[in-house]
């Protein structure tokens, strides 16, 4: 079985670094592709533009999606992914600072697979990172290959 690929949609470089650092700390060594805007996220997921080459940029096994993104928002990215025949089976986990009811409602309405709130405290964040790896990449059985 080939190693799972994570698509991390996150515009803030510091957040990216923290996330990657936490993954390393909890021993999550999977390939992580990083896109820094909603547009790029959609391009990647649908294999468009610079991500046309599916060999180089394969379909992700898990999308970690921030909601606050420049341009197209995380909600819209989620909506697009979950409303397309091609992509709706891809597990999408929202990883955000917002606990807002409205955000949660929209995401679940769109069919998000999981909604995680990023703790401010780094130690707690490490726990979340570990849980993501354990659950989504180990325990969870993904959709069938097409």
């Amino acid at each position: 079985m080939k190693e799972a690929l994570i698509l991390l949609v996150q515009d803030n470089q510091m957040d990216v670094e923290l996330t990657l650092d936490s993954f390393r700390q909890v021993g999550l060594t999977n390939r992580v592709e990083i896109v820094k805007s909603g547009e790029m996220a959609l391009d990647y997921v649908f294999g468009r533009g610079r991500y046309e080459d599916r060999e180089a940029f394969p379909v992700p096994d898990l999308v970690l999606l921030d909601l606050k993104l420049p341009g197209i928002s995380g909600h819209e990215v989620l909506h697009e992914i979950k409303h397309s025949e091609l992509t709706r089976r891809i597990p999408v986990v929202v990883l955000t600072s917002s606990r807002e009811e409205r955000d949660r409602a929209i995401c679940y309405d769109c069919g998000v697979n999981s909604y995680l709130v990023k703790p401010i405290d780094f130690d707690e964040f490490l726990i979340v990172a570990k849980a993501i790896g354990d659950y989504w990449l180990t325990i969870n059985v993904g959709p069938p290959e097409t």
Binding site: M14, L18, D21, K68, S97, K118, F122
Partner: peptide, 17 residues
Amino acid sequence: AHDLKAHLRAINGFSKI
């Protein structure tokens, strides 16, 4: 909720590291 917390997280995270 987002931005301030994101900055805080960065402060906290990198300080911890």
